[in-house]
């Protein structure tokens, strides 16, 4: 459709609009259904985008960060730590290697042992945070060298526990996207049913129009326009309420972790605006197909 045709479609032809009788009940149902579907679509979208962000973040950290743990007798700890840091600084592909301070280590353990733990009295290993550069270091080679020179060092590149989480976040994203597709399909199905009901309720109107020389396009448009506008308005309201719901959720915090990060960020807030447009497009296509089908049964 050209821009002029779209404008004409939206503005409508007051005369053409009158030839189909007003339909209160189905109109409200269509509004409600598209509103509810848009509302659900906003949440599916928020879930999908949040889990996508999470998967990306975890995957990136998985690829880039590692921890070196040095378990050595207290008198050798400082020496081994220094030796390990020296090795790391010489290793190509290591961007940052930093020994965590005692306070930082205490913070990491606090959630498990409570804040009042006398850390000094425990044989806590020294941790070294490693951030890989681009290209990354060769983990196998590094392990080999460390085992020779720093016997107490264990390199943990986090693969073991982050990989399943990334998988889970990715499946969550997939589920979100599948939900959006299903919501779109269900909307199309329900609008098709509503349009079919409207078309059969107005069978006589359609026959009369056809007999006085109305083109299929003209007849179909009277229905298509109504259902498209209803879907647009309903989905717009549903989207607004859905976004309000997402906006009112507690914002992402350090402690809340994954669940509180559910929502949109930055330009992500613009994505749900597509929902009413897509909803209207689905309604347009569904009604058009239904009208074509029912008109083709008439001479």
């Amino acid at each position: 459709m050209s821009r002029g045709a779209i404008r004409a479609f939206l503005v409508g032809d007051a005369q053409a609009d009158r030839v189909v009788p007003p339909s209160g009940f189905t109109a409200h149902l269509t509004l409600f259904v598209s509103g509810a579907m848009a509302f659900l679509a906003v949440f599916a979208l928020a879930l999908s985008m949040a889990s996508g962000r999470l998967a990306d973040r975890w995957a990136e950290e998985l690829a880039r960060s590692a921890t070196l743990r040095i378990s050595a007798p207290p008198d050798q700890r400082a020496a081994q730590t220094q030796a390990a840091l020296d090795i790391l600084h010489q290793t190509p592909g290591v961007a940052i290697a930093r020994a965590l301070s005692a306070a930082e280590q205490a913070d990491l353990l606090a959630p498990w042992f409570g804040p009042d733990l006398p850390l000094e009295s425990l044989p806590v290993p020294q941790l070294i945070e490693i951030i890989a550069g681009d290209p990354a270091y060769d983990a196998a080679g590094l392990r080999l060298r460390l085992s020779g020179e720093v016997p107490g060092a264990v390199l943990d590149d986090h693969t073991r526990w982050r990989a399943p989480l990334v998988d889970a976040a990715n499946s969550l994203r997939r589920l979100g996207l599948i939900s959006i597709l299903l919501i779109g399909g269900a909307t199309a199905a329900m609008i098709t049913l509503a349009a079919n009901a409207a078309l059969s309720a107005n069978a006589q109107v359609i026959q009369v129009l056809r007999l006085v020389g109305a083109l299929d396009r003209y007849i179909a448009q009277a229905f298509v326009r109504r259902f498209t506008l209803r879907a647009l308005i309903g989905a717009g309201a549903g989207m607004f309420l859905g976004m309000l719901g997402v906006a009112l959720m507690p914002s992402a915090s350090e402690g809340g972790g994954f669940l509180t990060g559910l929502g949109f960020q930055g330009a992500g807030w613009l994505v749900p605006l597509l929902i009413p447009i897509l909803g209207a497009a689905v309604a347009f296509a569904a009604t058009w197909a239904a009208a074509r089908r029912s008109l083709s049964e008439l001479s």
């Binding site: 009788p21 006589q204 009369v208 129009l209 056809r210 020389g213 083109l215 299929d216 396009r217 001479s299």
Partner: peptide, 22 residues
């Protein structure tokens, strides 16, 4: 179908059961 519609604009038909838009 469109040509049939155009043809019907040139033919006035009075049907037996004159149907209107009520």
């Amino acid at each position: 179908r469109d040509q049939v519609a155009m043809m019907r604009r040139r033919i006035g038909v009075v049907h037996q059961d004159c149907r209107f838009l009520d």
